[in-house]
């Protein structure tokens, strides 16, 4: 696999122009997620409105893959119920680990992360923010 398959344009776009970057001023929940093997750090803030995810924002330090993945995640979560968000996160993590196939049409920008599955050492970069999301949903108790 070539590097431009790993670092696809959509991924680079999210890396260079991360969506929903910076913390919420008054988050309902704040999660700090560390990747102890590399020292990367992501802070995730979120809030619900009427039983649905109103905002997920993030900031921190990470490689192109971890920041792009966080950016994509933050876009996809808006409007989902906590249960839907949890299911989405579980599906994505299983997809990255090669434990589950997902319909390419449902992936959206996440399809750009499919190449990461060929690089076992980088899978945790892509899943880091999703684990932070799972923790945030747990804290929200929704």
């Amino acid at each position: 696999m070539e590097l431009d398959e790993l670092y696809q344009d959509i991924l680079l776009d999210h890396f260079k122009h991360p969506r929903n970057y910076g913390p919420l001023p008054e988050p309902e929940v704040l999660v700090d997620e560390l990747n102890p093997t590399c020292g990367d750090h992501i802070r995730l803030t979120a809030r619900l409105e009427n039983g649905r995810v109103a905002d997920v924002r993030f900031d921190g330090q990470g490689c192109a893959i971890s920041l792009a993945s966080a950016s994509m995640m933050s876009e996809l979560m808006r409007g989902l119920t906590p249960d839907e968000a949890r299911a989405r996160a579980a599906d994505f993590v299983a997809f990255m680990r090669g434990e589950k196939d997902l319909d390419p049409d449902t992936l959206g920008d996440l399809a750009a992360l499919a190449g990461v599955r060929q690089f076992p050492l980088r899978i945790k970069c892509a899943t880091m923010s999703w684990h932070a999301l799972e923790k945030a949903l747990g804290k929200l108790g929704g």
């Binding site: 590097l3 790993l6 590399c38 990470g62 490689c63 980088r122």
Partner: peptide
């Protein structure tokens, strides 16, 4: 360039 991304380029 994050160190992991650099290491990936070097490894390639």
């Amino acid at each position: 360039v994050h160190p992991h991304d650099l290491a990936q380029f070097c490894d390639k």
